[in-house]
Computed example of a mutant assay.
Amino acid sequence: MAQIVQFDRTGKADVLTHREVDTPTPGRGEVLVRVEVIGLNRAEIMYREGAYFYQPVLPSTLGYEAAGTIEAVGEGVENLDVGDQVASVPAFLQTEYGTYGDHVLLPAAAVVQRPAGVTATTAAAVWMAYITAYGPLVESNNVRPGDPVLITAASSSVGLAAIQIARHIGAAPIATTRGPGKKQRLLDAGAADVIVTDDEDLPARIREITEGEGVRLAFDPVAGPGVETLAQGIAPDGYLVVYGALDSRTTPLPNARSFPALNTRTYALFEITSDPERLRRAVAFINAGLATRAFDPVVDRVFDFSEIADAQRYMEANGQVGKILVTVDHDTR
């Protein structure tokens, strides 16, 4: 038997229910993974609440990231075998697959082998965050060595990954945080500068840091009316990339009536993970960074599988710096 987490209605974390089900058998193109560590993401909270960009099909499982060992392989699966240590990348819908369980089915196309020396804990903390940051900072070719880039909500796992990737490619990451409590931790994480937005004028500080030039790219998960403030700190012909919607208010098109022009776009990591060639490049880039320790995921706190609702509540409180993980102890299952 397997244990999974499902919900029958949208709502707060208390809708999450642990259930025992028959251990699934992989179909064509699928693998069965014995899960060791689960990585949590804000997308799963939004999905549970019914606020994600697609709606759950109830009852629904959830989860995009996990690391573990392959226990069974379905027909047509190549380059993966029983016993392989692997991790999942977000390349599927939670209406079809999920990682919140001790044994889960996953599409083989969404599973990557863990390089030697990469633990399950590290592997479960990598793929959502680093692929999300990789797209605008690397794949786009819009950021050059020496360019200042603005990373908002920088204490998130994506924000910290973006800081490391920006450093790796020679850019200068400028992080934002609302209050002063996380400032030093962001500097320690590699930010060249940190702007405390509750206390400082964001465009003025950007101009001061960049000697009046502005940032080459702003990478923002918040959206909403605040993008107009971000736009004031972006250099001529620079880029505003919005990859989330933490602010549910309407997001205006900034700078539409002013000059110089600004390039604006929305972005989702599925642009990378749904394209096999782009995903191959992303995996190669990130694995290379892991191998040299240029990339080292920051883990804030680890919960037990029985505490998965508490883990989501902790994420909702917005106090973390880095990734929240859940471990699965098979000896107690």
Rank of each mutant, 00 (worst) to 15 (best):
Y52H: 04
P254R: 10
I165Q: 11
V321Y: 12
H103M: 11
D201V: 01
V31G: 12
E277P: 01
R28S: 10
R249S: 13
G117M: 13
A284V: 13
P59S: 01
D247A: 14
A204Q: 07
I195T: 11
G190T: 04
S306I: 02
V149G: 09
G76E: 05
I286L: 15
D296T: 03
E30Q: 03
G50W: 12
T176L: 05
S306V: 03
D147A: 05
A120T: 13
T69Y: 15
R280F: 13
R313K: 10
T132D: 03
P221K: 06
Q164A: 01
G68R: 07
Y134Q: 06
V15E: 11
T250V: 13
V326K: 05
T132Y: 06
R178P: 14
G319N: 12
T122M: 15
H330L: 10
P90I: 00
V31L: 08
T132C: 03
L253K: 08
D220K: 04
Q312D: 06
V158A: 03
A110P: 00
L80N: 02
A171H: 12
E271N: 06
T332E: 00
A166T: 04
E75R: 08
G170P: 11
E65N: 09
L279N: 14
K323G: 03
A87N: 03
L40F: 04
D198H: 10
P24I: 02
D84G: 05
I195G: 14
I70Q: 13
R9A: 07
S274T: 10
K183V: 07
D304T: 00
Q6E: 11
A172F: 15
G83H: 09
I165T: 05
L32K: 12
T266C: 02
A154Y: 12
E96T: 02
E78Y: 08
E65S: 01
A291H: 01
D8R: 04
Q164G: 03
E36R: 13
I165L: 07
G27A: 10
Q3S: 06
G212A: 06
A162I: 00
L262Y: 03
E44P: 06
N79E: 02
T119P: 15
Y243M: 04
V82A: 00
P260L: 10
Y239E: 02
T99N: 05
I272G: 01
T132K: 05
T332Q: 03
M315A: 00
T132F: 09
G76S: 11
P145S: 04
R144E: 07
R178L: 15
A291Y: 10
G214F: 03
N79C: 00
D300H: 07
T266E: 08
R48N: 10
A261R: 11
A171K: 01
D14H: 01
V37N: 02
R293T: 05
P59N: 03
A172P: 13
A51K: 10
G11E: 04
G98M: 02
Q232G: 08
P260Q: 02
G27W: 13
A110E: 04
P115R: 14
R280S: 15
D188N: 10
T152S: 14
A123K: 13
R257A: 14
P260G: 07
T176C: 14
P107M: 10
A231T: 04
L150M: 14
A120G: 15
H330S: 09
Y314I: 00
F259P: 09
L246D: 08
D193M: 09
T25L: 12
V138T: 01
V227F: 15
G63W: 13
A218G: 09
